[in-house]
Amino acid sequence: MAESAVTGTNWTCYDSSTMTSREIYGRTLAELAKADPRIVALTADLEKSTALNKFGEVFPERIFNVGIAEQDLFGAAAGMAKTGLIPFASTFAIFACLRAGEQIRTDIAYQNLPVKIIATHGGMSFGHAGTTHHCTEDFAVMRAIANMTVICPADGVETSRAIRACVDVPGPVYMRIGRGFEPPCYESEDYDFQIGKAVTMRPGKDMTIIACGIGVLQSLNAARTLAEEGIDVRVVNMHTLKPLDREAVLAAAAETGHILTVEEHNVIGGLGDAVASVLAEEGAVCRFHKHGVKDIFAEIGYAEDLYAYYGLDANGIADEARRMMGIDTPEDDNWEDE
């Protein structure tokens, strides 16, 4: 297995072409825990599904399974944090943000406890599991909870950076990752990752796509296509939805005049609304469009089919971008890439 050696917390990234972001999460956590005895992990019968078993293989005495009981999971995480520990609690995003939403709000966030909520299978990444297992509401819920930091990394590499960074956040963090089969966006960990600081993935002067999660790679691919058509697109990876990097938003508005937001989330309450608030509050004038799941429950299907159907793949994002720029989508007789 193509996996680089690791020592302490100072290590190079695992080969994300052979590992899912969930596996990277589990292994990153194990590395961190070697240096920090405060780190423990909790799960609700999803040790394998959330890849916390990678942590458990190294620290069997530091992983606690509470059974299929999400309210207990997050209540217990709050209790453990009260004893001085830093619990990483994982389950599927939808069960975290809604099933246990009140425990997260009242037990964890209100008491400002350093519980790290690593929510896997976010968005439509578990599309074929059906709508019960989709989660396109979590950004809205978590953004509205005071004290909460909200992160959605672009890929496995960024997941590992974010996992390490969130240990130093004194309060709670909600981190949404996917199912782990998303293609990587970053080639290495050698970039500046700071919570609350957007990453400009590609410069551009005609318009800016502000994306998070799987939207980042797809936006980069869309930008490449658009460049061939003469549209120079900046791509901003807004991995932290809260606190939002307001400077990056305002710079995009001033310098490119067009902002398209891309998120695997309902267009109500997520990244798009967060960006829109900044623009409105600052009186920034630009063309603006929110692209995401348009206030519907998604169909059933494998994630990549759903991304294509809802226009969250490179083609769909490019279409949205052209529409914004008032350019017709060119005829395309090549169905190979559809």
């Binding site: 530091r62 209540g75 209790g79 453990m80 944090a81 009260k82 004893t83 009140e102 009242t106």
Partner: peptide
């Protein structure tokens, strides 16, 4: 209501672990 005992469980687990 219903929040205290899960927190107590987590505290008990945390104390024992330490």
């Amino acid at each position: 209501l219903g929040h205290g005992l899960p927190i107590a469980f987590g505290m008990g687990l945390g104390f024992r672990y330490q």
